[in-house]
Simulated assay, not measured.
Amino acid sequence: MVNRRTALALLSGALSAPQAAFAATVREITWDDLIPSGVPYSEIIGEGDMDAVNDTWNPIYDENGIKLNNELDGVFVKMPGFVVPFDMNADGVTSFMLVPYVGACIHTPPPPANQLVFVNTAKPWPADQLWQAIWVSGILRTKLQSTGLGQTGYSIAADNIEVYEW
C-alpha cells in the first residue's frame, strides 16, 4: 500500500518530468534567425568607405545592424559558425566570437553586431581545431557588448561544442 508521502513524491516527480524534457529541447537556428523579422538582410549593412592606405573596406552599419531578435533571449539554441578566439590557454579556447563565415573579423571588417555571438565555455575548445566549422549549444542572450574585434549582439554560455558535419 502506498502512503500519502510516497504518493505525493511520485505525483510531483511526474509533474516535473514534462518540464525537464521541455527545458532540454534545443532549437536549431541559423544566422538569419538572429535578424529580427521584418529587417531584410540586405538592410543590415549600410554603405562603407574604402581605406586606400590599408586597402580595406570599412562598412558603415546603420541602425538595422544592431537590431536584435529579442524573441531568442533565454532560448536554448544550437547554431553553426566559426571560431575567432579571445581567451586561450594550454587546454584550448575558453572564450571566442562565433562568426558566420571563416575569417570574419580577422582580415576583414567584422560583420554587424546582430551577426556576431560572444561565447564562453567551461570546457575549452581545442586550439588545433580553430578552423573547423562548429555547432555551439547553450542559452542565447541578447545584449550588445563591445569587444576588441567588434560589437556583438548575442552571447552564449556554451553547454556543448562539436564539429559541424557537412
Rank of each mutant, 00 (worst) to 15 (best):
V2L: 13
V2D: 04
R4G: 07
R4I: 15
T6L: 14
L11A: 10
L11F: 15
L15H: 05
S16F: 15
A17G: 03
P18H: 07
A20C: 12
A20H: 03
F22H: 14
A23H: 05
T30A: 08
S37F: 14
G38Q: 06
E43I: 00
I44V: 06
E47N: 13
E47S: 12
G48K: 06
M50C: 08
A52Q: 11
T56D: 04
T56Q: 01
T56M: 08
P59D: 10
P59M: 10
I66A: 07
K67W: 10
L68W: 02
E71L: 13
E71G: 07
L72S: 04
D73P: 09
V75M: 08
V77A: 00
P80I: 11
P80H: 09
G81K: 03
F82T: 03
V84L: 05
F86Y: 15
G92W: 03
V93M: 07
V93Y: 05
V99P: 11
P100S: 13
P100K: 10
Y101L: 14
I106F: 05
H107F: 10
T108E: 00
P110S: 00
P112H: 06
Q115L: 02
L116A: 00
V119C: 00
V119W: 00
N120W: 14
T121Q: 06
T121A: 01
W125M: 01
A127K: 08
A127E: 01
D128F: 11
D128P: 05
Q132F: 14
I134T: 05
I134L: 11
W135R: 02
V136F: 08
S137P: 07
S137I: 11
S137A: 14
S137Y: 09
L144G: 05
T147C: 01
L149V: 12
T152I: 10
S155W: 06
A157C: 00
A158G: 10
D159I: 03
V163P: 03
E165M: 04
